[in-house]
Computed example of a mutant assay.
Amino acid sequence: MILNFSFKFIARKEKICCQFSLYKTYRVLSNASVDALWEKLINLGDVSWNPLLDHTNAPRGLRAKPGLIYQAVTRLTPIPIRVFVEKVDPGELLSLRVLAIPGIENRVTYQVESTLIGTYVSCSITLRGWLSPFLWWVIRPYASRVVRELAQSAESTEQVS
């Protein structure tokens, strides 16, 4: 787990503003293959492995493509949020931007890499904006479980096949 945190006070035209940014990475070693992890990750209609998301409006089997925007409903609130797929490097990287509330910029990047001892999957969360401390306080208990549950879901899918 890597944590990078910054909080700055900035004086602008007789106002004092604050900037908050947080960058956190969670990484897990999995026995599942890169292909199994990647298939779970890019299937936008199946978010059963994600402890933060309840469901999406994407049809099951829809694969992530750059520029795609879809809606997701979190397990915490019934309010739908918009998710923008920024970048996709097949088999390696998926970058998403969550467009939820003005005042918060949230970017989530998943990376999958194969090694001799297994497959590493990592999730990097970047939060910026003045409401970010509140959002981090809400999602922190769930954020640490995202990668672990993705790996477990891919491993169980591989065992069934």
Rank of each mutant, 00 (worst) to 15 (best):
M1L: 09
L3S: 10
F5V: 13
F5L: 15
F5H: 11
S6Q: 11
F7T: 11
A11S: 12
A11W: 09
R12L: 15
K13S: 07
K15V: 07
C17Q: 11
C18Q: 13
C18M: 14
Q19S: 11
S21F: 04
S21A: 15
L22I: 10
L22Y: 05
Y23H: 14
K24P: 01
K24S: 09
T25R: 13
T25C: 13
R27A: 06
A32F: 01
A32Q: 01
V34R: 15
D35N: 12
L37S: 08
L37P: 00
W38R: 03
E39N: 12
K40Q: 15
L41G: 01
L41F: 02
I42F: 06
L44S: 07
G45V: 02
D46N: 14
S48H: 09
W49N: 07
W49H: 11
N50F: 05
N50I: 03
P51E: 10
P51L: 04
L53I: 12
N57V: 03
A58F: 01
P59E: 10
G61A: 08
R63I: 06
A64H: 01
L68G: 05
T74E: 07
R75T: 08
L76T: 11
T77Y: 06
P78T: 13
P78V: 10
P78R: 11
V83L: 09
F84N: 09
F84H: 14
E86C: 09
V88T: 04
V88S: 02
D89I: 15
D89M: 12
P90W: 11
G91D: 03
G91M: 07
E92D: 08
E92K: 15
E92A: 14
L94P: 00
L94I: 06
R97F: 02
R97E: 13
V98C: 03
L99G: 05
L99H: 04
L99C: 05
A100Q: 08
G103D: 04
I104Q: 02
N106E: 08
R107F: 05
V108A: 10
T109K: 12
T109M: 13
Y110N: 05
Y110R: 06
Q111P: 00
V112L: 06
S114L: 09
S114C: 09
S114E: 15
T115K: 14
L116Q: 11
L116K: 11
L116E: 10
I117G: 10
G118W: 02
T119W: 00
T119N: 06
T119C: 13
Y120T: 01
S122L: 05
S124P: 05
T126K: 11
L127W: 00
R128G: 10
G129C: 08
L135G: 03
W137P: 00
W137H: 12
V138P: 02
P141K: 01
P141F: 03
Y142A: 13
A143M: 07
A143R: 01
A143Y: 02
S144Q: 12
S144H: 08
V147Q: 00
R148C: 05
E149Y: 14
L150F: 08
A151H: 03
S153P: 04
S156A: 15
E158W: 00
E158P: 02
V160C: 08
